[in-house]
Amino acid sequence: MTQQKMKRDPGANTSAQDTVAVQLLRKHRNDVPVSGWRLLAKRLGPVGLISLGIIALVVLMAILAPVIAPYDPYEGSVTARHEAWSLAHLMGTDQSGRDILSRIIWGARTSLIGPTIVILVTAFLATTLALTAVWFGGRVDALISRMLDILFAFPNMLLAILAVAIFGPSLLTASIALAIGFTPYSARVIRSVALRERNLPYVASAQLQGISGFVITVRHILPNVRTQILTGMTINFGYAMIELAALSFLGLGVQPPTPDWGLMVSNGQASLQQGYWEQSIFAGLAIVITVAAFGYVGEQLGGRRASGRTR
């Protein structure tokens, strides 16, 4: 069966001149679960697939906003303020007479960009730090661990607020600050898995053959932590979205009149007190559904595997 699998796998043709270590490396690579669609679907389960569908829908909404939004998200009319939902305005209009549905569709853009920046920066920082620490070990590892300990001392939101206080309110500032705050959590997970890999005999034998540490790390250790990186990114996305929305709610993130879900919840607060619930509730639900979808997918990707390993 392994023979068959090796034949199908393009990278696995073990030619005669390969050294034992290279063969070991290749073999090990094949042990990494292949991310086929069927495997993914099985791991996600029905609810996970629905969640994945929701994520795809939100992303599509963001990309196609100019095409599918029925109205201009910035243009309102004074005569059409606080309209209830109708065929003309499926989610009604806000305090400035703007179409809420259109603003939610456009809002998907800003609401997704922030978390995307956060998870990309987090993944880059955490992976770099973790792999550097693991490869060099000793003092480098200790130094990086101390650095992360200090970052652990700051609640994420506080870090973001401090950054905004220093550099002024902006989505980019808040996102980068949050990413720095998320880094120690992700780095710790990646480090522990990478450390296990680093201590496997094939790494030592590759090292003995004079393959550079950078090459071994990138080519062989990195692929083995990609599950952790991906899971972390999926789970962090949801948290980042909530925290960035909170910052926008406080007026410290996205600035009006840009359509953004967090900002819309905040804008709708006054209307809500008067009974016009549409803006806050629809924008809030958009956040809840998107975050829940990301959370569930992340949980299924990482959680199942983790619990399966301990058993």
Binding site: G238, I242, A245, A246, F249, G262, V265, S266, G268, Q269, L272, S280, G284, I287, V288, I289, V291, A292, G295
Partner: peptide
Amino acid sequence: AVPTFFAAL
């Protein structure tokens, strides 16, 4: 997934 501020509102 419910942001605290949304729950508050």
